[in-house]
């Protein structure tokens, strides 16, 4: 299984914010979820991959091709859905299709038409009349019709209702049935990534906090709910973060199986991606 995307030591310094030494890989046939709070660097990372901004350091390759040197060849194999629909309000889906068919060498008009029907998008109505959900569906239909090998989505499911999100996630899962395909999706809706992602990279303040197989992360991390007295007797090196509330304490355990062996009297539940993000993001790791 070859890598669809390799990001190595990516750096971008804005002065007030720095994307610092970000590295991760997206293997073929998988979905990589890029998670992190607002301003963590998810969009900056995606912009660097798409050469929308100039990186200060690091290497990016897509299917073994350099993202800058082989830009055209790379972009021919990448479908993009950004955080908002960027098609002109005066255009209708048919016109959007005609425009993109001249931009993408592998454009598949039949696939595009199929998605328009599947997503129930009116072909002759202008984008202006579309809801946000419809606009995102149009962008996703266009991204699929470009017949990409790698799909890059920046907060594409944010702001969509759960039914539409579920529908779109199913399409993503269909897309990666081909081992030659892969998806990089940034989102702060961790439940979506829990459903669809194979790998997760968590960005916090411009740095990679953790990156790995989602199932391994979820299997390893655990959530401890206990009293303040119990928390005080726990070895802090086993915890990734903790939160002391009025009625009890919560803590993120790094290795819940090892923890359970050491503290059999304490209950550790499986953690969610949101738990991992919240405990780490709040910066109150003790």
């Amino acid at each position: 299984m070859s890598n669809a995307l390799e990001v190595c030591h990516l750096t971008k310094d804005y002065g007030s914010f720095k994307l610092d030494d970000v590295s991760f890989t997206v293997p073929g046939g998988t979905i990589m979820g890029l998670i992190g709070e607002n301003g963590a660097g998810k969009s900056t990372t995606i912009k660097c991959i798409l050469n929308l901004i100039h990186r200060d350091g690091g290497e990016i390759s897509v299917f073994g091709l350099d993202a800058i040197r082989d830009e055209r060849a790379v972009k021919s194999q990448v479908g993009v859905v950004l955080d908002e629909s960027l098609f002109h309000d005066t255009l209708n889906p048919v016109q959007v299709g005609k425009i993109l068919s001249k931009l993408y060498p592998n454009w598949d008009g039949r696939c595009y038409g199929g998605y328009l029907r599947k997503f129930e998008l009116p072909e002759k109505k202008t984008v202006k009349t579309f809801s946000r959900g419809m606009k995102m569906k149009l962008a996703i239909a266009a991204a699929f019709a470009a017949r990409p090998r790698l799909l890059i989505l920046d907060e594409a499911t944010s702001g969509l209702d759960p039914v539409i999100r579920d529908e779109i996630l199913d399409e993503f899962l269909n897309f990666i049935q081909d081992e030659d395909h892969a998806i990089l999706i940034s989102s702060h809706i961790t439940s979506d990534l829990e459903k669809a992602a194979d790998y997760v990279t968590y960005l916090h303040k411009g740095r990679v906090v953790l990156s790995g197989a989602k199932d391994e992360l979820l299997d390893s991390y655990g959530k401890l709910v206990c009293s303040r007295a119990d928390l005080e007797r726990v070895d802090r090196s086993l915890l990734a973060g903790s939160r002391v509330g009025q009625f009890g304490c919560e803590a993120l355990v790094k290795d819940r199986h090892a923890f359970a062996r050491r503290y059999p009297g304490l209950t550790v539940d499986p953690a969610t991606l949101e738990d991992i993000m919240v405990f780490t993001g709040k910066g109150d790791a003790k």
């Binding site: 798409l50 050469n51 929308l52 830009e71 055209r72 972009k75 021919s76 990448v78 993009v80 950004l82 908002e84 960027l86 098609f87 002109h88 309000d89 993109l100 931009l103 993408y104 060498p105």
Partner: peptide, 14 residues
């Protein structure tokens, strides 16, 4: 108005 350039630059047109 559409922020179209952001999308256009991400296509093979660059």
């Amino acid at each position: 108005a559409a922020h179209w350039d952001r999308y256009a630059v991400a296509t093979p047109a660059g």
